[in-house]
C-alpha cells in the first residue's frame, strides 16, 4: 500500500483507550484531506480505529503489517 501520511502517531506500546485518545487529539490539529498514520501494536486497535472512523465520519484507508506493529491510515474527511 502506498499511502503518504501527513502526520505519524507513535502508539506502539500503548493500550486502550490511549491510541484512540491520541488519534482524536491529533485529528483536531489536522486539515480536511490530510492523512494520519497510527503505529500501534494494541490488538484492540484493529477494531477500535475503524469503529472510531465510522462514528466520527472520517475515512479508514486501511492498515499495513509492519512486523511488530501495524500501521493504520485515517483520512480526515470532516
Amino acid at each position: 500500500m502506498e499511502i503518504k501520511a501527513d502526520l505519524v502517531q507513535d502508539s506502539v506500546g500503548q493500550m486502550c483507550p490511549m491510541p484512540i485518545a491520541y488519534l482524536a487529539k491529533n485529528m483536531r490539529t489536522m486539515e480536511v484531506g490530510q492523512i494520519l498514520e497510527i503505529d500501534a501494536d494494541d490488538e484492540g486497535a484493529h477494531s477500535d480505529i475503524p469503529a472510531w472512523c465510522n462514528q466520527t465520519n472520517n475515512e479508514f484507508l486501511g492498515k499495513e503489517d509492519a512486523g511488530s506493529f501495524f500501521k493504520f491510515f485515517v483520512k480526515k474527511t470532516v
Binding site: P17, A21, A24, W52, Q55, T56
Partner: peptide, 11 residues
C-alpha cells in the same frame, strides 16, 4: 475513565 475517553475521542 476509559469509557469517557472513548466517547470524548468519538467527538
Amino acid at each position: 475513565f476509559t469509557i469517557a475517553i472513548a466517547t470524548l475521542s468519538a467527538g
